[in-house]
Design a protein around this nucleic acid. Structure first.
Lengths: 156, 156
DNA sequence: ATTGCAATTGAGACTAATTCTCAATTATGA
DNA sequence: TCATAATTGAGAATTAGTCTCAATTGCAAT
């Protein structure tokens, strides 16, 4: 799923550049808080929610308020550097997009497990559907809810 | 999108039967509040959220508490009589499934417009992906966010 | 029909997530 | 360096949704 560390580092630098560019275009500042949040997000190679992000930062002694995280995540989302993975009843979950290819999710209703999958054919088909509608896709989310193979067996 | 009224009426009766059956199976009661909510939901041939549903009922003089609506929607969801359409930052939107085939949504980031679409090929592909994973799909949601054709033109 | 009881209801208290406010601070471009 | 507009943190405010509990009501068995 991830390349080796060296490649990762180099690439995160590029992502940071992209973030700075995005901010500049919007007339927004690249503050140290945003930098910290950005770095934290890119150090998590998994799904995370806002709470986890915040706690993780506190543990490292990085003092950034929740409010700032609430304010920064939408920027990262909009610049395409992170994606919303899942929205439970309670709150959203995110993941950064670097080093991971886009993928979709199956959510098991029974055990809460998450299965990631990717289908080239699916992506292609979606692009073609959008083209037909004249719609320019920026992101998409496909969530399939149901029962994973383990839970299916258990239910029998 | 919808059949004529007569067909609709007859079919809603069937849906009501399905709802009663679902409740009975779960050992739940078919109360007059649930009946009212059910009827209201099936009188809306469009997306709605909980707030709208509640206000609509108040206007007609139907007194059902919000709490009861909060309690009833999950039942309708679980019995497959309604679906979650969209989850804005704030709250979920629903629609009843009768007389409308399953479809997915494109959401315009710029104007907030919603485009519904359905693709047989897409559904088929999803089924095949699930089969491969041994996953039993119950529902799925595909949301494509981007710019609709009108807004694309406007942005140029 | 009557009865008994578990499920349900409404109203408001409660909780959790998110947004807002505002004075103090800071990044940025001139 | 300076001016200024954006940003910050802390906590207040808001909002969606859940929970509590006494009163009510379906419903199944009499």
């Amino acid at each position: 799923m991830l390349e080796n560390k060296k490649t990762l580092c180099k690439a995160v630098k590029m992502e940071e550049k992209a973030f700075k560019k995005y901010l500049k275009e919007k007339g927004l500042k690249f503050t140290k808080e945003r930098d910290l949040i950005f770095k934290e997000v890119f150090s998590i190679h998994d799904h995370f929610d806002l709470e986890e992000l915040h706690i993780g930062m506190r543990k490292k002694g990085l003092k950034v308020s929740k409010a700032s995280i609430y304010r920064t995540l939408p920027l990262l989302l909009e610049s395409g550097l992170i994606e919303q993975v899942e929205r439970t009843e309670k709150h959203a979950h995110y993941e950064h997009t670097f080093g991971r290819n886009h993928h979709d999710h199956m959510l098991c209703i029974s055990c809460g497990g998450v299965i990631e999958f990717y289908s080239k054919a699916l992506e292609r088909l979606q692009r073609s559907i959008c083209r037909k509608e004249g719609f320019e896709s920026v992101t998409h989310t496909l969530e399939i809810k149901g029962y994973c193979s383990k839970c299916r067996k258990r239910r029998e």
